[in-house]
Nucleic acid binder design. Sequence first.
DNA 1: GTTAGCACTCACATATAAAGAGTGCTAAAG
DNA 2: CTTTAGCACTCTTTATATGTGAGTGCTAAC
Lengths: 343, 343
Amino acid sequence: MQLSTRKQKILAAVIDLYVSTGEPVGSKAICDILDFSVSSATVRNELSELSEMGLLDQPHTSAGRVPSHKGYRLYIDTLMKRRPLSSEEQRYIDSLLLPSAYDPQKLLDGVARALAGMTRFAAVSITPSSGEAEIRAIQFVQTSRRTAMVILMTSAGTMKSRVFHCDFDLTPDILRVFYRVLNERLVGLPVSTITPAYIQSLAVSLGDMSMLMSSPLMALLDVAQDAMQAEVLTDGEMNLLFYREFSQDELRRIMDFLSRPQELSRMLMKPANNVRVLIGEETDQPELSGSSVVVSRYAVGGKDAGALAIIGPTRMNYSRIISNIEYLSNSVGRMLTELMDSE
Amino acid sequence: MQLSTRKQKILAAVIDLYVSTGEPVGSKAICDILDFSVSSATVRNELSELSEMGLLDQPHTSAGRVPSHKGYRLYIDTLMKRRPLSSEEQRYIDSLLLPSAYDPQKLLDGVARALAGMTRFAAVSITPSSGEAEIRAIQFVQTSRRTAMVILMTSAGTMKSRVFHCDFDLTPDILRVFYRVLNERLVGLPVSTITPAYIQSLAVSLGDMSMLMSSPLMALLDVAQDAMQAEVLTDGEMNLLFYREFSQDELRRIMDFLSRPQELSRMLMKPANNVRVLIGEETDQPELSGSSVVVSRYAVGGKDAGALAIIGPTRMNYSRIISNIEYLSNSVGRMLTELMDSE
DNA sequence: GTTAGCACTCACATATAAAGAGTGCTAAAG
DNA sequence: CTTTAGCACTCTTTATATGTGAGTGCTAAC
């Protein structure tokens, strides 16, 4: 499908106007902003051909035109001019991320918040799953007479902790035993080694000590399963309340979808090496038929790791959003890589 | 203001019917559910007197009656029969809380989630501020070559951690120094001791070592300020989308309010020894004029500590909500107290 | 290929009427 | 003095008709 330059410009004009006003755009309005001069009748002829090609929709016979999903697709793939972020914007984003640069957990949380704040859409940040990461260390910290915290640190730079309770008083010596026993056997192995069955066999191999260690072992299992699960953080769901194109009912369905981490993860973690845009049905998610998703995967240490995404109404300023999310996801990838290398 | 038994029964009937249907209730409907038999005309006379007293509102002259805020107030204070939770319900709630019983952070998070899930309203959990709590220990755990985590544990059973980064390689010995220096000076003091000025003077008193310790000191300051701040957790904001009495606009304002922790805290932390109900304007919050708040303070170790609350439309089943929140807040108080005593 | 002109369409707003729920009042009965 | 039946009245809701205006599609001329 090849479009004449004029058709391209008209299509772009329709999208620009519609994105900024939210109203169907008529032939007259287009004439006003075109950089060459034609009559509205000419524009009308072009519009009707664009409609025929399925690039524009018409809410009803006598209304202006609205971009169809196919129209948005063409616009994003070939027409849209991508404006890189100004250095000022870059500095602003950097300043948002810097405070949490050394804590992966906080970083990914901060990123979701920053993304939601900048775009005014709902943001999703999926943290790398640490399944294949190696166990770097298992630390114990006493938190009260009979409770302690187990901290699992991985080569992916993630860290998970959990408090557990014992039926006897803990002492530094006992904790040292926990530490030695577990680190001797587990450091260097992939986190995915820690399964219920493995913990079971470990307990058996401990003989007399297995009673003593049942609480920390259960906690370790727990924390390992937590670490293996790709974490899904969402932020700014509230922002979606501001878009009048969403009905109360649609809003509910979207919010509901946003609270289902597995499905979000499935949708966003498809491999891709740059920013992907999913428009309406392209998300394969009926509840998002009126929404678009912009997602960017990022790599840590050269390997695909997490993803960053926004979800908003199909009518959005794609150019701006793509620039933002691209810069943000590159930053996160870079920061996490540095964090990993420094270990 | 003394009401005849009949008026009381009629008022209660109006509220019960209105709460369950959401429609203004007419005199006929009331006759049907009253446990004595009178004509609709009699009921109408009573209704008009109740209206005159300001206990009922009328959307328009020819509509049924709707409880006024004053009517709800009277109902809650004197008419409502409080149904204690069945032991089955109690067991259900207990089972929701048990898994996180040993970790205050998780507990308070779990409580908010449980409350939102059970009531289908927005839930708020305010954790005790640990300002007056004593510092129990300051632990350090290495997380990578040049980063470590500082963990502040308090006598209130709370625990906060933060990762920090040094410009030199860390070793177990260095961390031991951090530990010794800080614990020697700070354990036993109230958390509120740790102010920027105090950290400053501490650094000065360390002489040569202050360079070495600047990162952990800053991290400690950070984590202490975090600990002193009463934490406000919200959950289930989404639930409010389901109540058609909220307009899109009102919803936005409520959500916005829910995201302002200081104001939530100010509203909910007023001292009180049992469940409080705030109806509409009683919240002193213009954005909540169509909402009610049910809040229950709980004590830890005999002292007022945190609060648990729900926010929903004024039309709600107060009896059910109050029972739930009361049981939940007692459970939390008890669990946190046990946690504290065991230290 | 482009443009002016014009009939036509359709959403939206406004006005009018009919239906229905529920009240308030009056007068009679208990 | 309280209760009740009866009825006119009010006000929302729903349906139907009417006018207005933005914007199109088409035709014929340039």
